[in-house]
Nucleic acid binder design. Structure first.
Lengths: 197, 197
DNA sequence: CGCCAAGCGGACGGGGGTCTCCACTTAGCA
DNA sequence: TGCTAAGTGGAGACCCCCGTCCGCTTGGCG
């Protein structure tokens, strides 16, 4: 690949991440091209479709999520590990509209194997927190999806407001995730795939 | 207005409510027209713009919300009244995608005076529940918006799933709204107007 | 330094959305 | 029953988006 081409590709990706973060995935390809100072064709030569660009733009964040869960499993305090994961991923979601949408849409080929592993690890984290007696027994791993979907409802307001709101929402929810409280309606087997609509 | 015209208008409204509920506001005008057995021009003669149709289609539900709060203020148990309002409005939101979107978008001219009154009444409901000692003192009326936005994140999954999920989410939240729990991050002065983006 | 493939950008096709225009139809009064 | 104004529907103007095509430009090797 020629030097100028490589540089253009990098700039396109940076601009895409930036615009996706502040305006969501519905930002037109032409806008990304314009801000990056290239033509539309350049985008489509490097990324065969818009979806490919989105996937590429967010792989980093997805890996980051996985790393967060890995760290949390190593935390000596299971409850703190559990809380930290939820707080961090919700904050990430609240501060990046594109991440939220990409996460929700979760394109079929978007690292499905990574997603599966993440899911298993999170289930382990939940079990560990339950065994320690700090997480209520009727918490379901599906409740993570519930939290993520609820938190995604905050997207669309300016980023600072969304992060503040997310912090408060998560604090409310974590409080009721603590062990020793009343019974709840049954867990809902939510899957992000349902959002495809 | 001629008899046939009146009938057509009613049918269009019914169909619009139906389609908005199941598919959200992004359903095309042409689809509504087709399902109602009329041409597009008929829609636009009765409702100058799509927004007007949406407003007209949801005034009923909005009035219903107001009525719910009125009833709740009459409930002898302030806490039960408070919970019932939140449960009902969230369930309504979860079972009607269009309502959610219309509520969130809350078009400028969408009964702004009604909205103000509803807001005041809800604030009264909150104060009453706090005075009775059952609602935590640091609950903010803005937290209603927080709940609504969070709940709106559940839209997009099939209606039965969304309602089940909403029930569980609301149960979690109400549990932590109860008095006698830990401190929270400060309330966020959310306004639905922020969602205009 | 010259050459050519790799790279480039803007015009364009195709699809889908809102809303308008206009020739035709019909309700319903006299 | 005849007339006319109210009502109708579909074609199409206009806009925005994704993705492609093609003639021009340029990096960088020999």
């Amino acid at each position: 690949m020629r030097a100028d081409a490589r540089e253009n590709r990098a700039r396109v990706l940076a601009v895409a991440r930036e615009l996706f973060a502040e305006r969501g995935l519905e930002v037109p390809m032409a806008a990304i091209a314009r801000r990056a100072g290239v033509g539309v064709a350049t985008l489509y030569r490097r990324f065969p479709t818009k979806e490919a660009l989105v996937v590429e733009a967010f792989t980093e964040q997805f890996a980051h999520c996985q790393a967060m869960i890995d760290d949390a499993l190593k935390d000596p305090d299971p409850w703190r590990g559990f809380c930290t994961v939820i707080e961090k991923v919700c904050l990430l979601q609240a501060s990046d509209r594109g991440f939220t949408a990409a996460f929700m849409a979760s394109f079929p080929d978007l690292h499905s194997e990574v997603r599966d592993r993440t899911w298993e690890d999170f289930a382990a984290l939940v079990q560990r927190a339950k065994d320690s007696g700090q997480l209520r027994a009727d918490f379901s791993p599906h409740d993570l999806t519930l939290v993520l979907m609820a938190n995604s409802g905050l997207a669309g307001v300016p980023a600072e407001v969304a992060t503040a709101a997310s912090r408060r929402l998560v604090a409310y929810l974590l409080e009721s995730f603590r062990a020793g409280t009343d019974a709840l309606p049954p867990p809902v087997p939510l899957s992000l795939d349902l959002v495809l609509s």
